[in-house]
Design a protein around this nucleic acid. Sequence first.
DNA 1: GATGAATGAGTGTTCATTCAT
DNA 2: TATGAATGAACACTCATTCAT
Lengths: 180, 180, 180, 180
Amino acid sequence: MVKIMDAAFSLIARQGYESTSISQIARKAGISKGLLYNYFLSKEALLEKLIQNAMSQGEQIVATSFTDDPAKTLENLFRRFFRELRERPEYWRLLTELTLKIDKFKFVHDIAVEKMTAYTELLRHLFVQLGVEDPAGEAKLVAAVFDGIGMQAVVIKQDYPLDELERILIRKYCNRKITQ
Amino acid sequence: MVKIMDAAFSLIARQGYESTSISQIARKAGISKGLLYNYFLSKEALLEKLIQNAMSQGEQIVATSFTDDPAKTLENLFRRFFRELRERPEYWRLLTELTLKIDKFKFVHDIAVEKMTAYTELLRHLFVQLGVEDPAGEAKLVAAVFDGIGMQAVVIKQDYPLDELERILIRKYCNRKITQ
Amino acid sequence: MVKIMDAAFSLIARQGYESTSISQIARKAGISKGLLYNYFLSKEALLEKLIQNAMSQGEQIVATSFTDDPAKTLENLFRRFFRELRERPEYWRLLTELTLKIDKFKFVHDIAVEKMTAYTELLRHLFVQLGVEDPAGEAKLVAAVFDGIGMQAVVIKQDYPLDELERILIRKYCNRKITQ
Amino acid sequence: MVKIMDAAFSLIARQGYESTSISQIARKAGISKGLLYNYFLSKEALLEKLIQNAMSQGEQIVATSFTDDPAKTLENLFRRFFRELRERPEYWRLLTELTLKIDKFKFVHDIAVEKMTAYTELLRHLFVQLGVEDPAGEAKLVAAVFDGIGMQAVVIKQDYPLDELERILIRKYCNRKITQ
DNA sequence: GATGAATGAGTGTTCATTCAT
DNA sequence: TATGAATGAACACTCATTCAT
């Protein structure tokens, strides 16, 4: 049920998983607690569905960034990442919070590691094409930058200079001559 | 009471704030629940003290990194940051988790913003001395890198290439000639 | 609906009345919950039908045991009782469990008393024909033995010496000369 | 806490385990639900304590029945058994109901089998001393009689002829000459 | 006849917090 | 200073029952 997922998403993204009760979710979705359990086996199962949903949206972003020009592809990735951060910060909040729950929910670890290695590998591949020195290391660095910016954007919110960071990153990595 | 803080710190760092009960903390600290409430007004107040404590430890790291040579100072900062990550990963876990509780605990936002601006300003200052182009932007980027690496290290744990990232960062930013 | 009764019977006999849900019964019967309520007014009503059904099966056992020879009739009763216990122990489980719900379901008491007096009267009648001393008392005793053996067989299961007890009872009560 | 045990005992004995809620028990005991959980880890743990309590009382009955004369010992056992049934029928209700829950609670099986074998062995021993033919078989029979009478007394209540059955049993098994 | 979405009161259990001692 | 008995509101979850279709 999409109403439930939406309600759960916005509440959990804002308050965190443990601080959001099934009652709250049901109330916000406009249904009874009992009905919620017709759709989801447990609170944890609901969370898992939520994450899977969010992840698949993330994959679309990557998929639609590809072009023949690696510099352009990289720029697309950067721009879409920042757009996401601006338009749907709660998505990153949820992902980040969940990532920290790695010891509590077994399904999180697999998703997190898979996501991280996939992104890093993608960046490395682009850096190779762009002739960047130590592409593997640079990819890891940029992956960390992504996570760090996501985290800080979520925390500092409107005061965080997303625009400036976007400009810096694109200038640094996507111009003709990549020297550094 | 330091026993309480220690107990609370290790439990919350490992299990998270909501999953750690006052009973557990009191038991681990070897005192009664009642006594705990003689020292802290509430669970939330204990958490606040915990964070303030953790932050001040972070400041010590910064303070002891200073030298006359900005490149050396920067290298010290990097090295100490990575050492912390290796030796006390729970510290970062706690900080990261708590940072995300921004909407739940008002005091978190102020602390987080203050920390971040202080670090960024420090980095900017060093970059100015080192003649880095766009020192303010670079400082923001490196601050994000720090947060990102901390986050990923906490999640990926022993498989995360801390050593490699440390080497890359130092090579990139702390060598005589800073060109990028 | 016989499918419902069968499903309910096997589930309740195995798990007990309270631990068996209407959903389970409907699922096992291959119908919807709603349809089940077309046939039975409530879970309790279903239970009542279940018991009546079980009781009438018990009566068939008695009815087909009759012969002209009271000793043979008694032996038939014994043998059929033990056969039932061996072949359909869940039947006894259900009856025993339900019998204990006397304070919860008013209909249980009437059924139980009626069953017991009928059996006792039957036994008494046979004992009179067999010239047993104090036939009424002996009948009550044997009725108790039946219940006790049923109970113990249900609990101890495969380790309970049903064969031995059958032999003992028949030797004791069904031989030409009844002396005791 | 004895208040809790008493409340739980009387409620569970009357209504059954599943039909008695923790709320009811706490209310009857005059305490909060939370406090109940300071004394018992779970509803099941409370039940286990209840049974252990009941069993140890049962053992006292057996222990105080012994004399040098086996016939007198047997008579004592019979009389005490019937006295218990008259004075504390709920005790038997609880024990019987629990016994049927053998598949649900692991601790029940051990207790039930132990109780049953101990009683049967005791009876067999007495029957040997009394020169009863097939003492082992007779012991099993009498053990079943006990269970059966207990069961019927619980169900039929005031209409069940406990006095008559007591007289019959004692006459049958405890007189000088045991012939049967 | 037949479905299953929907409800609401209930369950066992947890836990931050208080307070008499 | 120190205890822990006690509370009450909350939690995740279940289930008999209803009803529009």
